[in-house]
Amino acid sequence: MGIFPGFSGWINQNIQQPLKTSKRSKNGKSTSVSEEDRYIQGPWYWDPDLSPKEKAESLELDHVKSMPLLSTDPKYYDLDELARQNELWKSENEKHPWNDAPDKVKVKTKKGLCHLNIDFTLGSPPQAVDEMFTNPRNLTFFHSMGKYKNHWRTRLDTIATKVLKKDGPRQITEVEKVLRWKILGYNGTFPIHVIIDENHQKVTATYKKVKVKYMKVFEGSWKMEPLYVDQERLCKSRSRISEEEYKKCSGGKGRIGSKVTMEHIFQPSSFLNVPPVSWFIRGIAVKVTKVLLQDLREFVTTMNKMKVLD
C-alpha cells in the first residue's frame, strides 16, 4: 500500500492521541463538530495505492485523525521510496548510528525587525519532514517532554485549516494554530493565524501573518533539501551527486536525511517594541523555536529506533 504502513501507518499505530469522534443522530448524519475539531477541513490527500475497499473502511472511521491521509500532495514525490527510506533508517540505526549536527541559530535585529535564521539537520527524508511541518492532525511531533509533560498535550496545535488555492504543486493554505510556551516561570498561549504558500515538489514554503497577537510583523520561510548521510561511507565520494546516483552507488542502502533552512522575521507591536519588553519577547521567540526543533529531533530519533515492521 505504498507509504502505508511505512510512514503514516506508524503515526496512527504509535503516537496518535485518543480519538474524539463526532456524534451521530438517529438518521446517521453527523452533528456539528466542536471548536476543537474545526481543522478536519483539510488539506488531505489519499495514498494513491490505497484500494477502494481500504479507502471505504477508512471513511467509516468518521474522524480524520484515524484515516491514512497525507497533508502533502503525493503526485510530486515517490511514496514507495519514502516508505523504503523510513524502514532503512530503522534497520541501519544500530549498525551505523547517525547524529544530527548542532543547530545553527543566528539572531539579528535591524530597524525593529528581528531576523531569526536557523539551519539544522534531521534523520528523515525531506518529504517526511515537510509532512511534520504541515500536518494539521495535532499528532505529537511537537510533544511536551520533560517538565512539560504533566501540563500540556502538545506545544503546537492546529485549530483550523482551509485551502485557498491549489495550482499543481503549489498550495496556499490558511492556518490557525496555538503555541504554548513556558519560560522563566511564566507560561501562556500564543495564537497564530497565517497564510502558508507551499510547493510540494520543491519542498519549500513561505508564510505571512493574517493576525498574530502582539505582532506587527510575523513572516518567514523554510526549505528542505536532501542530505545523503551515507555518501562518504558507501560511495567514497564527497562531491555533489543526484538522488539517482546516490541510490546506485550505495546499492540502495544509502539513507537520505534532511537539511532544513528556516528564516523567521518578526516585529512586536509598536507599544511592545521597546526595551525591556522587546528583549523579553525576542527571548521567548528564540527559546520556543529551539524547543520546538528539539521536539522534532527527539521524535525522529525515537521513530528511527523503532523495530522494522514485518
Score class of each variant (00 low, 15 high):
121 T>Q: 13
186 Y>Q: 10
54 E>I: 04
87 E>K: 01
168 G>V: 13
129 V>M: 05
81 E>F: 00
257 G>A: 15
268 P>M: 14
210 V>L: 15
65 K>Q: 11
78 D>T: 07
1 M>L: 06
93 N>W: 05
270 S>C: 06
148 Y>A: 11
142 F>R: 04
165 K>I: 11
198 E>T: 11
18 P>W: 06
274 V>K: 12
199 N>C: 06
53 K>V: 12
111 K>L: 08
31 T>P: 00
85 Q>T: 00
239 S>E: 11
169 P>W: 11
263 E>A: 09
7 F>E: 02
158 T>M: 13
137 R>F: 08
280 F>A: 14
289 T>P: 01
248 K>T: 04
46 W>T: 03
33 V>S: 12
243 E>R: 02
182 K>V: 06
190 F>W: 15
125 P>G: 00
97 P>G: 05
105 V>C: 05
233 R>H: 04
264 H>S: 12
148 Y>H: 15
184 L>K: 10
55 K>F: 04
276 P>W: 08
24 R>V: 15
13 Q>N: 13
210 V>T: 14
226 P>S: 08
150 N>M: 07
73 D>V: 11
183 I>E: 10
169 P>H: 15
39 Y>V: 10
229 V>Q: 02
45 Y>A: 06
93 N>I: 05
51 S>V: 07
79 L>A: 05
233 R>D: 05
53 K>I: 05
54 E>A: 15
219 E>A: 12
225 E>L: 03
113 L>F: 14
237 S>I: 00
229 V>R: 02
115 H>P: 00
99 N>P: 01
232 E>R: 08
131 E>M: 02
161 T>D: 07
118 I>Y: 00
19 L>V: 11
10 W>Q: 10
129 V>Y: 01
207 Y>P: 02
172 I>H: 10
52 P>Q: 13
305 K>T: 08
237 S>Q: 02
36 E>N: 13
43 P>T: 11
257 G>C: 08
246 Y>M: 03
130 D>M: 11
91 S>M: 07
131 E>Q: 11
176 E>P: 04
289 T>D: 05
66 S>Q: 13
93 N>Q: 09
293 L>Y: 08
223 K>W: 00
198 E>F: 04
112 G>P: 02
145 M>H: 09
302 T>G: 04
245 E>R: 06
95 K>E: 14
231 Q>Y: 00
17 Q>A: 13
172 I>K: 13
171 Q>K: 14
161 T>V: 13
240 R>K: 10
298 E>W: 05
206 T>D: 09
165 K>M: 13
173 T>A: 12
251 G>F: 08
185 G>E: 11
307 K>A: 12
274 V>G: 03
275 P>H: 10
175 V>I: 15
302 T>H: 09
23 K>V: 10
237 S>T: 07
96 H>C: 01
2 G>A: 05
292 L>A: 06
188 G>C: 11
44 W>H: 08
57 E>M: 10
54 E>P: 04
188 G>F: 13
211 K>F: 03
11 I>V: 13
269 S>E: 15
191 P>R: 10
270 S>P: 02
156 L>F: 14
74 P>H: 01
259 K>L: 13
156 L>D: 04
171 Q>T: 14
32 S>L: 07
